[in-house]
């Protein structure tokens, strides 16, 4: 399969303007014969929304403005990020997966960073589940940004037998050294290398670029294969439209060599978690 990652900078608070950009990139991805196009976290709205959160929130099952995205998904699967008003007045940081003219799945961000420069917990409601779903390419699990840094989230997607773990992100760059790039970029790659290898799954990470209120988003989108090998690394801080061919046969090969997935015991993990929580041992 061919996968397109859009490492771009949305306009903060301007859905129509961002939708127009989405259509352009989708058109480009179709020309490049991509099967799936992935946009970063909150790609329709921008990230530093604060009180704009409520104003840009929408219900993706009902909002007419998203009809064209639905239609376009007859030709290519599409993942976008938006503010979802699932219940009235409750706003979720959501990733929406469109396929065959329908919404196939929505992931609502569970781990909302609220410390230092992050304020998501102030404005967003917390997602309650990690799910996997089947597509024509295989099993997919979606995560949003910080979700991926809590490895329990990825574990759920392993237990759900994900073939592709897809992370959409708006991760700022932080920390400088003599090397180019931000110190904070390394942690994403470290996690991706580990998770892809020990889940024997592809890990696809699409991060945005651009500046909001003086914060710079780091870019550096990437794809790791089920062996833990980096297939693609986008540039730091610059916008990029990235295309990568994924050889899904590698899932079989990796799992024949390394039996992590076959040997996994989610029921024992579940029992252990229940015991730990019941005995308050954590």
């Amino acid at each position: 399969m061919r996968c397109a990652l859009v490492q771009f900078s949305p306009h903060l608070g301007l859905i129509e303007k961002n939708l127009a950009l989405h259509y352009q990139y989708i058109e480009q991805a179709r020309k490049e014969k991509a099967d799936l196009i992935i946009f970063p976290e909150l790609s329709l709205t921008g990230y530093t929304l604060k009180d704009l959160t409520a104003e840009v929130a929408l219900n993706p099952y009902q909002d007419q403005r998203l009809n064209q995205l639905k239609t376009l998904s007859h030709k290519i699967d599409i993942i976008v990020g938006l503010v979802e008003e699932k219940e009235k007045g409750l706003f979720y940081n959501s990733a929406v997966y469109y396929s065959q003219g329908e919404i196939l799945a929505i992931h609502r961000k569970v781990f909302l960073p609220t410390f230092g420069l992050f304020e998501e917990g102030k404005f967003f409601a917390t997602g309650r589940f990690f799910r996997c779903f089947s597509t024509s390419f295989g099993r997919i699990g979606l995560l949003i940004c910080r979700d991926f840094l809590h490895y329990g989230a990825s574990y759920c997607l392993l237990a759900g037998k994900s073939d592709l773990i897809i992370v959409i992100s708006a991760a700022p760059g932080r920390g400088m050294s003599e090397k180019p790039g931000f110190a904070s970029s390394e942690m994403w790659e470290l996690m991706a290398q580990t998770i892809s290898r020990f889940s024997t799954a592809f890990v696809i990470y699409c991060n945005r670029v651009g500046f909001e209120d003086g914060v710079v988003f780091a870019g550096g989108s990437f794809i790791y294969d089920p062996w833990g090998k980096c297939l693609l690394r986008g540039p730091d801080i610059d916008p990029a439209f990235l295309i990568q061919e994924l050889d899904l046969e590698n899932l079989r090969l990796a799992r024949k060599t390394w039996s992590f997935l076959r040997d996994d015991k989610p029921e024992i993990i579940l029992n252990s978690l229940q015991n730990l929580l019941a005995k308050n041992e954590n």
């Binding site: 306009h11 903060l12 608070g13 301007l14 530093t48 604060k50 009180d51 704009l52 500046f211 209120d213």
Partner: peptide
């Protein structure tokens, strides 16, 4: 608690 981003609609 009137908290809009500096880059509001930019």
């Amino acid at each position: 608690d009137f908290l809009y981003p500096y880059d509001w609609d930019r």
